[in-house]
C-alpha cells in the first residue's frame, strides 16, 4: 500500500504546489481587500483611512494580522468546546476549496472539471454550517440569533443564485467554466450580461446577500445583536471567520466575472485596431480587472446603502429575485432555441 502511494507522490506534490500558488495570492488579496475597504470607505466618507503603518498605510493589514494572532482566545463558559473550535475551520474550508475549479486564464486552472459550476455551488452551500455551528456552540443569545438570521438568509438567497446559474448553463450549454467563457467569445456584446441582464442583477444581489455583506449584513447588525454569530470569538478563530468572509467575496466576484463578463476575455475583442493593440495583455489581467470592479462595488455598496430590515430582506429574496429568475429562464431557453444573435447564433 505504501509503495503505491509513494509512486503517486510526485503528482501529489505538483498539485500541492499549485494549491499553494493559488492560496498565497488569495490570502494576500484578502489582506489588501480589508485595507482597500477601509481606504475606499474612508474616502467616500471624507476621511483618509489608515495611513500610519508603512507607506500610506500599506502595511496596515499585516499589523492587523499580528494583532489578531497575539490576542487571547476566549472560550465562553458552558460552550460546546469541540464544536466551538471546529466552526471557524468549517467556515474557511469551503471558502478555499471552491477555488480548485476557478479558471484564472486560458490555461491557468487547477482542476478543469466538467461539472465545475456545480462543484463551486455545492462547496459554497456547505459554508453555512460553520456559521450555524459557531452560533450554537458559543452558548450565547446574540450568537444564536446571528447564526439563525445568517443561515436563513443564505439558504433563501442560494435559491435565486442557483436559478440565475441555470440561466447561464442554458445559455452556455455547459457546466465547465472554460466552456462558459468560450461561449462568450466574439466581442464585448457577446458577453452574457446583455442577454441575461436580469439574471446578472439577481446573481449580483444574491451574491452580496450570500456573503452576508452590507446592505444585507443583518447577521452582524451591530445595533441589534452586537456582532452576530462570531460575537464570542476572539484572536485567531475570529480571524478565520474574517478570512472566510473576504475569500468568499473574492470568489463571488470571480464567479460574476466568469459567468457574465467573459472571464479572461479581452473587452476589445473583435474591434479592429484595438484588438491587436491590446493583444499582449494576458487573460489574467482582464480577469483581475473585472474582479476588482466587483470588489470595489462591494465596498461602494457598503458605504452607500443603509442596512435592510429583516422582512424586507426576505421579501426581496423570495418575492422579487426568485420570480425574476423564473420568468427569465424560459426567455433564455427560447432565445437559445431560436438561435437569436449575436449570442446564440
Amino acid at each position: 500500500m505504501i509503495m503505491g502511494l509513494l509512486e503517486e507522490l510526485p503528482a501529489f506534490a505538483w498539485i500541492l504546489i499549485k494549491i499553494v500558488a493559488i492560496l498565497i495570492p488569495l490570502l494576500l488579496g484578502v489582506a489588501y481587500l480589508t485595507f482597500a475597504e477601509r481606504k475606499v470607505i474612508g474616502y467616500i466618507q471624507g476621511r483618509i483611512g489608515p495611513n500610519r503603518v508603512g507607506f500610506r498605510g500599506m502595511l496596515q493589514p499585516f499589523a492587523d494580522i499580528i494583532k489578531l494572532v497575539f490576542k487571547e482566545i476566549i472560550i465562553p463558559v458552558r460552550s460546546n468546546r469541540y464544536l466551538f473550535f471546529v466552526a471557524p475551520i468549517f467556515t474557511l474550508t469551503p471558502a478555499l476549496i471552491a477555488w480548485a475549479a476557478i479558471p484564472f486564464a486560458p490555461n491557468l486552472i487547477l482542476a478543469n472539471i466538467n461539472a465545475g459550476v456545480l462543484y463551486v455551488f455545492a462547496m459554497s452551500s456547505i459554508a453555512v454550517y460553520g456559521i450555524l455551528i459557531a452560533g450554537w456552540a458559543s452558548n450565547s443569545k446574540y450568537a444564536m440569533f446571528g447564526a439563525l438570521r445568517s443561515a436563513a438568509q443564505t439558504i433563501s438567497y442560494e435559491i435565486s443564485m442557483g436559478f440565475a446559474l441555470v440561466g447561464v448553463l442554458i445559455a452556455a450549454g455547459s457546466m465547465n467554466f472554460q466552456d462558459i467563457i468560450l461561449a462568450q467569445q466574439g466581442s464585448l456584446l457577446n458577453w452574457f450580461f446583455i442577454p441575461l441582464l436580469p439574471l446578472f442583477m439577481v446573481f449580483w444581489i444574491s451574491g452580496i446577500a450570500e456573503t452576508n455583506r452590507a446592505p444585507f449584513d443583518l447577521a452582524e447588525g451591530e445595533s441589534e445583536i452586537v456582532a452576530g454569530f462570531h460575537v464570542e470569538y476572539s484572536g485567531v478563530s475570529f480571524a478565520l471567520f474574517f478570512l472566510a468572509e473576504y475569500a468568499s467575496m473574492i470568489l463571488i466576484s470571480f464567479l460574476l466575472a466568469i459567468l457574465f463578463l467573459g472571464g479572461w476575455l479581452s473587452p476589445f475583442e473583435g474591434i479592429p485596431g484595438l484588438d491587436e493593440w491590446f493583444a499582449w495583455v494576458p487573460g489574467l489581467a482582464w480577469m483581475l480587472l473585472k474582479v476588482s470592479f466587483f470588489l470595489f462595488a462591494y465596498l461602494w455598496l457598503r458605504a452607500t446603502f443603509p442596512r435592510y430590515r429583516y422582512d424586507q430582506l426576505m421579501r426581496l429574496g423570495w418575492k422579487v429575485l426568485i420570480p425574476t429568475t423564473i420568468v427569465w429562464i424560459p426567455v433564455v431557453a427560447v432565445l437559445v432555441k431560436l438561435n437569436v444573435g449575436p449570442w446564440f447564433s
Binding site: 472539471i113 466538467n114 461539472a115 456545480l118 462543484y119 455551488f121 455545492a122 462547496m123 452551500s125 456547505i126 453555512v128 439558504i155 442560494e158
Partner: peptide, 14 residues
C-alpha cells in the same frame, strides 16, 4: 460526479 455534487448541494446544503 453529477450525483455526488447534487448529494452535497441538496442533502448537505439544504
Amino acid at each position: 460526479e453529477f450525483l455526488a455534487l447534487i448529494l452535497i448541494l441538496v442533502y448537505v446544503g439544504a
